[in-house]
Amino acid sequence: AVSDRLIGRKSVVMEAISPQNSGLVKVDGETWRATSGTVLDVGEEVSVKAIEGVKLVVEKLE
Rank of each mutant, 00 (worst) to 15 (best):
E62R: 10
N21H: 14
V2R: 09
G53F: 03
R5M: 08
E15W: 06
S11T: 13
S18D: 07
I51L: 08
L6S: 02
D4W: 10
L56K: 01
G29L: 05
V13L: 03
K60C: 05
E44A: 09
S22M: 12
E59V: 11
G37Q: 13
V2S: 13
V12F: 08
V48W: 01
S18C: 09
S3I: 12
V13T: 02
W32I: 04
M14A: 07
V54T: 14
G43D: 05
R9P: 05
R9C: 12
L6A: 02
D4E: 14
E30Y: 09
W32H: 08
K49I: 15
D28E: 08
S18N: 08
V42P: 06
A16M: 11
E30K: 11
A34T: 03
D4S: 12
A50W: 07
S47V: 15
T35A: 06
E44C: 09
P19E: 05
V2E: 10
M14N: 03
T38N: 10
V2A: 13
I7H: 04
T35W: 06
A16D: 03
E15V: 13
K55M: 15
K49C: 12
R33A: 14
V42Y: 04
L56Q: 01
E62G: 12
V42H: 02
V12R: 05
L61T: 09
E62Q: 13
A1K: 12
T31D: 07
L6P: 01
V12A: 03
G8F: 03
I51D: 02
S11F: 08
M14K: 05
L6V: 05
E45S: 08
E30P: 01
A16H: 08
E45W: 15
V27T: 03
S36A: 11
A50L: 06
L61Q: 08
R33T: 12
G43V: 00
K26E: 11
T31A: 07
S3L: 14
V54A: 14
L24E: 04
S47C: 15
V57T: 05
E62F: 12
S18E: 04
E62D: 12
L56F: 02
S11G: 15
V48E: 02
Q20R: 09
E15Y: 07
V25N: 01
V12I: 14
G8Q: 03
E44Y: 04
E52D: 14
A50F: 07
V42Q: 07
G23C: 04
G53P: 03
L56S: 03
R33Q: 14
L56H: 01
V39K: 11
V57H: 07
D4C: 15
T35K: 08
K55E: 14
V42G: 01
E45M: 12
I17S: 02
V48N: 01
I17M: 04
V39F: 15
T38G: 09
E45T: 13
A1D: 12
S18H: 07
S18W: 06
E59I: 09
E44H: 05
I51Y: 06
T38S: 14
K60T: 05
E44I: 08
P19T: 04
T35L: 07
S3E: 10
T35R: 05
S18K: 06
G43W: 04
V27C: 08
G37I: 12
M14F: 09
M14D: 04
G37S: 15
K49G: 03
L40V: 07
I7M: 05
I17F: 02
V58L: 03
R33L: 14
L24T: 10
L61E: 08
A34V: 02
I7S: 04
V2H: 12
E44R: 03
W32N: 01
I51Q: 06
V46Q: 03
L24S: 10
R33K: 11
L56E: 00
V58F: 00
I7C: 10
E52A: 09
V57K: 05
Q20H: 12
I17Y: 02
G8H: 04
A50D: 07
A34S: 03
I7W: 04
E15H: 07
Q20Y: 12
D4I: 11
G43Y: 04
V39E: 10
E30I: 11
A16R: 14
V13C: 06
V13W: 00
R9M: 15
V57D: 01
I51S: 03
D28I: 05
V48S: 01
L56C: 03
V12Y: 09
S11R: 00
V42N: 03
V39S: 12
G53S: 04
L40K: 01
R9V: 08
S3V: 11
